[in-house]
């Protein structure tokens, strides 16, 4: 299977008052039509990696890479117009909090229809039909009612479903989900993941799932990339997480309390300077 996305030596650098800060320092991985998890703690550069692929890095930052290709297209080489056309059409992104990523003054249905009509030429009626079908696909029980609601009128879980519907309506080939369920309650979290899982496998998409929650990622994804201080410290199959080699990955797995495993005190992570070297 050829890779959908190829990332080689990706670097993202931010200029600040005190000098350059490298948020991402040489990240390499490739993605097929699979579920890839990127895990790390705050400041590990996981979100900046996702944004760089998506082309959402703030303008003052500098991006460089030996290779950053999506389906053979050099993402750093294309014009910003081509990049915009790719975004939404072939690559989509879901962010943590639907409250901030949905337009508050436009009904959910209209937002989905607009998204569809910017990428495809369809009639209004057809767009509406497809939007309703999409809302149904993300298991919204009464799609006709939700279609006319505004984002503030729905719960967090419903908002995130609407967001997923909006992102998937144009039928992208790759989806980047940055902490898509962290703002949701645990029981809702699983419903949303369930929906995401079905859609990704039905449509044969590639998924990059960015999260701080190693356990959640390992139960959801096929493969896991573990990041620390802007670098990839380990890449492995999710099923083999128990046999992780890197002390950081193992520390991260160990330090979470688990039901049925009494450990007092909890093992803590001893950060070694050589990990970020």
């Amino acid at each position: 299977m050829s890779a959908l996305l190829d990332v080689e030596d990706l670097r993202v650098t931010f200029p600040t008052r005190t000098g350059l800060i490298e948020a991402v320092r040489g990240v390499s991985f490739s993605l097929g039509r699979e579920r890839l998890g990127i895990v790390g703690e705050s400041g590990s550069g996981k979100s900046q990696t996702g944004r760089a692929i998506m082309g959402l890095t703030p303008p003052q930052a500098r991006i460089s890479a030996n290779k950053l290709t999506f389906d053979g297209i050099d993402l750093l080489g294309v014009s910003s117009r081509q990049r915009r056309a790719l975004r939404g059409n072939r690559i989509a992104m879901i962010l943590q909090d639907p409250k901030y990523s949905l337009d508050p003054v436009m009904s959910i249905g209209r937002q989905i229809v607009e998204t569809l009509r910017t990428h495809e030429t369809v009639t209004k009626a057809e767009a509406r039909e497809r939007a309703l079908a999409m809302l149904e696909a993300v298991q919204i029980r009464d799609p006709k009612r939700v279609f006319d609601l505004h984002p503030h009128e729905v719960s967090g879980g419903m908002g995130q479903r609407a967001m997923i519907a909006m992102m998937l309506i144009a039928g992208p080939e790759m989806l980047i989900a940055d902490e898509p369920t962290s703002a949701l309650d645990v029981t809702v979290q699983l419903d949303v993941l369930d929906i995401l899982d079905k859609l990704v496998s039905e449509r044969g998409m590639g998924l990059i799932f960015i999260s701080h929650d190693l356990r959640l990622v390992s139960s959801f994804c096929d493969r896991v990339v573990v990041m620390y201080a802007g670098k990839v410290v380990e890449q492995l199959k999710a099923s083999e997480l128990r046999h992780a080699q890197h002390p950081y990955t193992r520390g991260l797995l160990n330090c979470m309390p688990r039901i049925g495993f009494e450990r007092h005190p909890l093992p803590v992570l001893e950060r070694k300077p050589e990990w970020s070297a």
Binding site: E41, L214, G251, L252, C255, M256, P257, P265, R271
Partner: peptide, 11 residues
Amino acid sequence: LDASVQAEVLN
């Protein structure tokens, strides 16, 4: 807090 920091604070 991050998971590793959480463990420290819980301890």
